[in-house]
Nucleic acid binder design. Structure first.
Lengths: 194, 194
DNA sequence: CGTTACATACCGACCAGACGGTTTGGAGCT
DNA sequence: AGCTCCAAACCGTCTGGTCGGTATGTAACG
C-alpha cells in the first residue's frame, strides 16, 4: 500500500525534526522535503501541521496505556507489579526517546482541545498508577507520611527527565538503568518502620 | 529611574507570556502591549526577542549559582549540606515557577551560542552538586552501586518536573514539600548496610 | 474489449497575513 | 544643541495553508 508509505514517511520526518529543532522552528516545507514528498501529498493525509504533532502524542499515549494495562492485568504482589510498571515505562521511554522529547516539550503547541485530550489521557494513566501506591499503603508496605501526588510526581519526574540527559552513546544499559531508577524510587517509597 | 521601569516591565510581561503560551507563540507585539510600551521602547533596551528569553535564563542561572555557593561555603556535614542545597533549590524553583517553566521548555529556542552558554553554566552547578555526592560516597555514607550521573539526574528530575505539576493553589506547603522531596532523595541515596 | 465515469492520490505555484526587526521623527531633559 | 528615550509607521521575509489541475486506477456499461 503506497498510502501508508507516504503518511508514515512524513510522520517519521516530522518526529525527527520536531525532536531536533522543536515544533515551532520546523516548517512544513522542511518536513515534506525530509520525507521526500510534496506539501500537496502531506496535506492530503493530514489536515494541519498540528495534526502531525498530535499523531505523535496519540502513538505514545496508546502505547503507554496498553503496556500499563497488560502489566496490571497480570496481577501479583503490589510491589512486584509496581516494579514491573516502573521498569517498563523507563525502558519504553528510552526506546522512544525522540517521542519523549517532543512529548514533554511541545504540549503547549497543540490546540487547546487537543491539549485537554492529552491531559485527560495522561490522567487516566496517572490514576491507575496512583491505585497501586494506595494499595501498597493500605497493605502498610508503603509510607503514607508523604502525599500520594508527591510520590507520583517523584517517579514521573524521572521519566520526564530522561530525554534531557540519557544518551544512547552513554555507558548506561537500558534495562540496568530502568532497574536502578526503579530501585531508587521503591527505596524512598517503602516504610522504614514496621 | 525610568529606564529600569520600562525594561523591567517588558521582562515581566515577556516572562508571563512565555510561560503561558510558549516563546514561539508569543509575538513581540503582544509583549510590548502587555507591558504598556511600544516596540521602539523595547528595542531600545533589547536587541532581539531572543535577548528577552536569554535575560530570563541569565537571572535564573545567576540566582541558583549564588545560592549554591552560599550554602556550600557555610560548610558542615556532607548530608546536612546536601540537604540544605536540595531544599533550597526546591523552594527557589517554587518561588520562580514561571521562570522554571520557560527555562525547561524553551532552551532550544535560544541561539546556538546562548544554548551552549546555558549548558556550560548548568554544568558548573551540576559539577559542584556532584562533588557533594562523591564526598558522601567517600565517607561511606552514600551508596556507590548506582552511577553518580544517575543519582544526580534522579534529583534534578524533581526540580525539572516541579513547574509541570505544582500549583500555588494546591494544598502543598512550599517548605514542607521541599523537605519531603529532599527526604525522598536522601533516603534513596543512603547506604542500607554499614 | 473499448469507452465512459468517477474517485483517489498527488503536484507545485500561489496567497494572505503575521512576524521580527528597522527607520524616522520628535519630545523632553541637560 | 545634543543626547537619551521612545512612538508609530513601515518593510522584507517566511509561513501555514489553498487551489486548480493532472495522473493513475478501477468499476460499469455496451
Amino acid at each position: 500500500m503506497k498510502t501508508k508509505n507516504v503518511a508514515d514517511e512524513v510522520l517519521r520526518a516530522a518526529l525527527a525534526l520536531f525532536a531536533e529543532q522543536g515544533y515551532a522552528n520546523t516548517s512544513v516545507q522542511q518536513i515534506v522535503q525530509a520525507a521526500g514528498v510534496t506539501k500537496g501529498a502531506m496535506y492530503h493525509y493530514f489536515t494541519s501541521k498540528d495534526d502531525l504533532l498530535f499523531a505523535i502524542y496519540e502513538r505514545m499515549l496508546s502505547l503507554q496505556k496498553r503496556r500499563l494495562d497488560e502489566i496490571t492485568a497480570a496481577g501479583g504482589e503490589t510491589e512486584a507489579v509496581l516494579r514491573a510498571v516502573c521498569e517498563d515505562v523507563v525502558v519504553t521511554s528510552i526506546d522512544f526517546l525522540p517521542e519523549g522529547t517532543v512529548f514533554f516539550r511541545s504540549q503547549h503547541m497543540l490546540t487547546p482541545e487537543r491539549q485537554a485530550e492529552v491531559k485527560r489521557r495522561r490522567r487516566e494513566y496517572h490514576d491507575k498508577f496512583a491505585e497501586l501506591i494506595v494499595r501498597g499503603q493500605e497493605e502498610k508496605r508503603f509510607r503514607d507520611d508523604v502525599p500520594v501526588p508527591v510520590l507520583i510526581a517523584h517517579f514521573f519526574s524521572d521519566i520526564h527527565y530522561l530525554p534531557h540527559w540519557y544518551s544512547h552513546e552513554g555507558p548506561e544499559n537500558e534495562a540496568e538503568l530502568a532497574a536502578q531508577i526503579t530501585e531508587l524510587f521503591l527505596r524512598s517509597l517503602r516504610r522504614t518502620d514496621g
